[in-house]
Structures are given as structure tokens and as C-alpha cells.
Amino acid sequence: MSETPLITTRGLSVGFNIGGSIFGKRILKAVDKVNLDIPLGSFYGIVGESGSGKTTLGRALLKAVPITGGEARYDDGEVSYDLTTLDGSELKDYRKRAQLIFQDPYAALSPRMTVRDIIAEPLEVMGLTKGREETDKRVREIAAKCRLNLEHLRRFPHAFSGGQRQRISIARALVSGPKFIVADESVAALDVSIQADVLNLLKELQSDLGITFMFISHDLSVVAHTCDHVAVMYLGRLVETAPTRAIFEAPRHPYTKALFSAIPSLDPDERGGAQKLEGEIPSPTNQPSGCKFHTRCPHVVDHCRKVEPTLENAGSEHEVACHRWKELLAAMPA
């Protein structure tokens, strides 16, 4: 894995105008001032509760939703694009380099198309091959990498299980030769036994093809197994980022600690230790002042309600946005 960032954002924001009144517009802040560096060749995890902005962040980096503030850049060593202004021929080229694997393998595939046609569609739409023979060759190559055989290419999606359908979706995402893939809850709809098979396939593809994955998930055990680095989102903001081992062994932010404490354990002595968070995540249209987490944090003080924390260094490649993280760390039992 290279330390060179493939994706770099500074103050990245995505807002949606959801109407208004005589008092002005109502803006939903889905992503709010996110600073992110995704290393080339990494498997980068984004975690958080539903409504935290994970999916919107991924779609913004794919130029599937408009970026309304800040900076975002893609640089794979061959080309460099400013994602905030990308359009025209550059956007068409970027579509080849950045792809999405959808969450639901049942809804993502057209029931009227054969597997061959589903995988070949990006090649034909983008004009990446010169004829049917070249297209079929590319389809067969990608199908083999995704553990699909020639017989599968003649069938329709209804003939396949959920795991097989997801492999078809992965093949479709890979066929254009992308450098960057956003996997949005790509194993959440699968049985646990099938999840491991798909995750291992993604890791193999990352290693063989040098792809950079942004892996969005709410399943922390899956993230621990798969990702090199983890970023935790809450209400559109990043509250903590670190290498996977570091953040699972020593989370610094109270929100991260609460999330990780809910991971089921096979050790009966460790069960029942989950930290309960009171209340629901606030509305993105009516965000609290100061620290966004202060309405649910068990360690809140008056300063937290007034001043919004920024990410600060908490160790090697470890960053946390919490006013009291040093104080809370010092208070932990040795």
C-alpha cells in the first residue's frame, strides 16, 4: 500500500436544499467539512450509524452528488482531477476510474439482461472496446477473476443466489479497469457465511489489481477483518481516524468507544459491556452547536456545547475530534 493519497479532501461539504419558509432556506448538511486522505492501494473503512453521512460522502467522491463546499482531489499517478469542478470529457474519463458496488445485489441487476450483457454494459456505454469480440474477451477475463464461469454469462440474474449476484455486481464495477471503488454496504444484504467469501474476493482483487477501496459499513467486525484504516463519521463529520488495529485497540472518541463496545464477543465474561448511547442522532437540518455529539455524550461539559472540536493528532496516524480525549485517556485504569 502506498502512502500517496489517491483521494484527498479538505473541508468537503455536501448540502441539500430541502425547501424553506419566510425565515429562509432549509439546508440538510449531509457531509460537513470533512478532511480525508485515502492512500493509493488501501482498503479504507468508513463507519458510523445510519444517517451519519457515509453514503453521501462516497457518492460525492464519485461525483454522483454535487459537492457544495471545500476541496476534493483524485490523483492516481496518471491523471489528477479536481472533483469539485470535474465535467465534460474529464468526468467521462473519471467514470472509468471510479466505480460503485451497490448494497443490494437483487435490486442492482436488471432482470431482463443476461449476465454477459450486464457486465459488458459499461464497456459499451463508455466506448472502451472496439467490437463484440474484444468486449466478450474482457467480460470473460473479469468474470473469471470474480469466480464466475462461462455458463453463468448466458443466464439471467434470477438464476443466482445473493452471493453470486454480488460477484456479478463486482465484475460490472471492475470491467472498466477502475482505480477507485466505493463499496457501499456491499455485504450487508448477504448471509454471514457468504459475506466472508465476498470479502475475501474483494481483498484478492485489491491485491491483484491494485485497486483502492472505500468500504462503507455499519458492521464493525467486517471492517476489522477487511480494512487497513478506519474513519468514524457522526452527523456528517469525521470524529476519529486511525489505522484499523490502533483504533480497535485504543479508541479515543467517546462515540467510537460506544460503537466498538457494542461488537458481540464470544467471551461470556465480556458480554453485557456495551455502552448505551441515550437518544437518537440529531437531524442534519437542525444540528446542535459546539460538538455535534454533545447531546448524547456521557462526558459532556459546557465547553463542548459551545466550541466545535477539530481533528487533532492523537498518536501515529491517529486523529480525534474531542475536547476531552486526553483527560479521558489519563483517567482510564492502567
Rank of each mutant, 00 (worst) to 15 (best):
P5K: 07
P5E: 00
L6I: 10
L6A: 08
I7W: 00
I7Q: 00
T8K: 08
T8V: 10
T9H: 05
T9M: 06
R10N: 12
R10H: 11
G11K: 10
L12H: 01
L12F: 01
S13L: 08
S13R: 06
S13V: 07
S13K: 04
V14A: 04
V14S: 02
N17C: 13
N17L: 13
N17R: 09
I18V: 10
I18L: 09
I18Q: 04
I18G: 05
G19E: 04
G19R: 03
G20T: 05
G20P: 00
G20K: 03
G20Q: 01
G20I: 01
S21N: 10
S21M: 05
S21T: 07
S21W: 05
I22E: 12
I22G: 08
I22S: 12
F23R: 13
F23G: 13
G24S: 02
G24K: 02
G24E: 02
G24P: 01
K25Q: 10
K25L: 13
K25D: 14
K25P: 15
R26A: 12
R26F: 11
R26Y: 11
I27D: 07
I27F: 10
L28I: 04
L28N: 08
L28Y: 06
L28V: 08
K29Y: 13
K29D: 14
A30M: 05
A30S: 06
A30G: 03
V31F: 01
D32I: 13
D32R: 14
D32K: 13
K33D: 13
K33Y: 12
K33C: 13
K33T: 14
V34K: 03
V34H: 00
V34M: 07
N35L: 12
N35H: 14
N35M: 12
D37Y: 12
I38K: 00
I38N: 01
P39F: 08
P39Q: 04
P39A: 06
P39V: 06
L40C: 14
G41V: 10
S42G: 03
F43C: 10
F43L: 10
F43A: 08
G45R: 07
I46G: 08
